[in-house]
């Protein structure tokens, strides 16, 4: 034990009496480890870059010159047809609302499920303390399955439309928020819960009246943050699967030239929505955390 506490083999062990030498040796060793780690990291990055470049259809150095070619083409054509864009905004507004609805419902359902899972898997609050581990593993699994997997499988069963994306995002959200909620609930004051228990409140009443009021601001904050993430997820799932503005974007992109005004209109709608929701949610989150 002493050997471990004082460092390497006896011969190389610094003499604790000589403070300066000990300190310098420690610093040198730390720097050497840091240096080795840095070199390793750089080597990993460089070889990873080479490998990814080799397995890509078009190489990095060929592509880098063309990065602006496609945006320029799109913007030039859209600029020529800029008169259409306000009308296109109206045309795509329903799809945007659908995308937002998918994200909102998924966040809502996911947050409700996550809240129940969180309370069931928090030490000291759980309804069945023996099953805490089970509920935690359940949340881990729900977080680990990417949304696209569930969405594509559900499209096979339920057909296209917004519902598969909504269920997929809600499933993932329940796992992700459940974990965060549980961390918040762990720090909640237990006295109200004990007080309620002493007057014979049921588990549901203890949670609803004793825990939820304490954790609500933080939970809502996390929920809003998740809503931002889910809007992006909902747009992507629309592109890969079906439903919402992502699907319209895919159709416009597949058409290619001649519909770039639509592409730009969708880009702009999506961009403005994401920025607006980010701003709103960060404003409300600040208010929730500061309490006014």
């Amino acid at each position: 034990m002493v050997d471990i506490a004082f460092g390497p083999e006896p011969g190389h062990r610094p003499d604790p009496a000589d403070n300066r030498a000990t300190y310098l040796q420690m610093v040198r060793r730390k720097r050497m480890y840091g240096g080795i780690l840095l070199v390793l990291f750089m080597a990993l990055m460089a070889s990873g870059f080479q490998l990814a470049d080799a397995r890509n259809a078009g190489g990095f150095w060929n592509g880098i010159g063309n990065v602006l070619a496609f945006p320029t083409e799109v913007v030039t054509e859209a600029w020529a047809n800029r008169a259409n864009i306000p009308a296109l905004f109206w045309k795509f507004l329903p799809s945007l609302v659908e995308t937002l609805n998918i994200a909102a419902v998924a966040t809502l359902i996911g947050a409700l499920a996550g809240a129940v899972l969180a309370l069931l898997s928090t030490r000291g609050l759980a309804r069945w303390p023996r099953l805490i581990g089970l509920f935690r593993r359940m949340m881990d699994a729900m977080r680990a399955i990417p949304e696209i997997v569930i969405a594509l499988v559900l499209i096979f069963i339920l057909g296209g439309g917004p519902v598969p994306a909504m269920i997929a995002i809600a499933f993932h959200t329940a796992g992700a928020l459940g974990k965060l909620f549980s961390e918040v609930a762990e720090n909640a004051d237990r006295k109200p819960v004990e007080g309620l228990a002493s007057v014979g409140a049921s588990w549901g009443q203890r949670m609803w009246l004793g825990v939820i009021p304490q954790v609500a601001p933080n939970w809502i904050g996390y929920g809003l943050l998740r809503f931002e993430i889910n809007i992006r997820a909902s747009a992507i799932l629309g592109f890969v699967g079906s439903g919402g503005i992502g699907h319209d974007l895919k159709l416009a992109m597949q058409w290619g030239q001649g519909r770039y005004d639509q592409v730009v209109a969708i880009f702009l709608l999506l961009f403005l929505t994401i920025v607006a929701v980010d701003q709103l949610s960060s404003h409300y989150r600040n208010r929730l955390v500061k309490g006014h």
């Binding site: 592509g63 990065v67 992006r232 592109f239």
Partner: peptide, 28 residues
């Protein structure tokens, strides 16, 4: 930073895959 974050990952993916073609480099 706000602009890059606001233009969603989906849009970056589409724009970049036009320039670099399909493959892991584009995703990275």
């Amino acid at each position: 930073f706000d602009f890059v974050r606001g233009v969603d990952g989906l849009i970056w993916t589409i724009v970049l895959s036009r320039a670099f073609g399909p493959g892991p480099m584009t995703g990275a």
